[in-house]
């Protein structure tokens, strides 16, 4: 196509004849086909991945100043500050390992109780630390770029955590980097449950980094301010039991079917640079309910989606 144009391009006076129009029409049709295929099927991941090889360096270059400043401030900070930080981290570690001791015995106990109830085993999880690149993709959508890609075993739909809670999931994969959608993006929904009583619902993004919406709870639902929301694992994408947010306001509206409930994300969505990627312990993706026994439901996973599964899929547009 390029050669066809350069031959007509020598003709500078008439360079804007019918040829650009025809080319434009062809390209527009091609674009519409690509848009449709990408929107409906998502078969173009390969094209996207190979193009990502070209665009990932641009993202790295844009990230360079802020990562250089981070590194410089690390090497320039005073000895006293470093000692202070070291002391603080040591204390934190002691505290955390104390909590983990109790957690291990609780996990054992949970396992035994599950055996008594004859329900499936909980699958363990494996974590990989990654860094977010300091790039802003679109002010109206909440997307971030992670510096780990398919080379590191990252897969599409993989959950992304930070130190405090769930951040989002991977949407587009490149060989060296990947793009993730945050839970506050308006097109994202995550199945959650109230930690206090197990009430299940869906938390939808609002487009505001500090706000989630719970639009599907009736006025008489047992939920109150300060309730912790954790992932319910029902979307078969996020592992169960990770904190998502805290309920901030519950407004029961007598005239409406549903209450207006808002929550604040637990993860520091606009501040974290260090994030965690989660796998099952055996390295497989979470595309199946980790609690379900694959033999007992005869592989008919699709039917037991209670609507939250399909909501969760809704992000990939």
């Amino acid at each position: 196509m390029a050669s066809a144009f350069s031959s007509s391009g020598n003709d500078k006076l008439f360079g804007h004849g019918p040829s650009p129009l025809i080319r434009c029409v062809l390209l527009v049709l091609l674009s519409i086909v690509i848009i449709t295929v990408d929107h409906r099927e998502g078969h173009l991941d390969r094209v996207r991945q190979s193009l990502a090889l070209l665009t990932y360096p641009i993202q790295l270059i844009v990230d360079l100043p802020s990562s250089a400043i981070d590194r410089a401030s690390e090497s320039l900070s005073r000895r006293g500050e470093l000692l202070e930080e070291n002391r603080r981290l040591r204390a934190e570690r002691l505290e955390l390992s104390g909590q983990v001791q109790r957690l291990e015995s609780l996990e054992q106990e949970n396992e035994r109780l599950r055996e008594l109830l004859q329900s499936g085993e909980r699958v363990g999880e494996r974590l990989l630390a990654a860094e977010l690149l300091q790039v802003s993709l679109d002010p109206f959508r909440h997307r971030v770029v992670v510096d780990k890609g398919s080379r590191h075993g990252v897969y599409q739909g993989q959950p992304l955590l930070d130190a405090d809670g769930v951040m989002g999931q991977i949407t587009h994969l490149g060989p060296f980097g990947a793009e993730a959608i945050l839970i506050t993006d308006p097109s994202h929904a995550i199945p959650v449950e109230v930690n206090r009583n197990g009430l299940r619902t869906i938390a939808v993004g609002t487009g505001n980094l500090t706000r989630l919406e719970l639009p599907y709870l009736p006025n008489n639902a047992d939920i109150q301010e300060g309730d912790l929301l954790v992932t319910s694992g029902l979307g078969m994408r996020f592992p169960r039991g990770y904190p998502v947010g805290t309920v901030q306001s519950v407004e029961r509206r007598p005239g409406e079917t549903f209450a207006a409930i808002h929550a604040e994300p637990a993860a520091a969505l606009n501040r974290s640079r260090e994030v965690l990627l989660v796998w099952r312990e055996d390295g497989l993706p979470f595309d199946r309910d980790p609690l379900a026994d694959p033999d007992s439901n005869g592989g008919r996973d699709q039917d037991q989606n209670d609507g939250s599964g399909s909501m969760d899929e809704g992000e990939s547009q």
């Binding site: 390209l27 091609l30 848009i35 193009l51």
Partner: peptide, 25 residues
């Protein structure tokens, strides 16, 4: 020309993670 613009748009789509072909169109 239009072809250059289309390719740039495709790169823009991958870069910002929008629907493939949107900026190209």
């Amino acid at each position: 020309n239009v072809g250059t613009a289309w390719i740039t748009g495709l790169l823009l789509d991958v870069l910002t993670g929008s629907l493939l072909g949107q900026h190209a169109l």
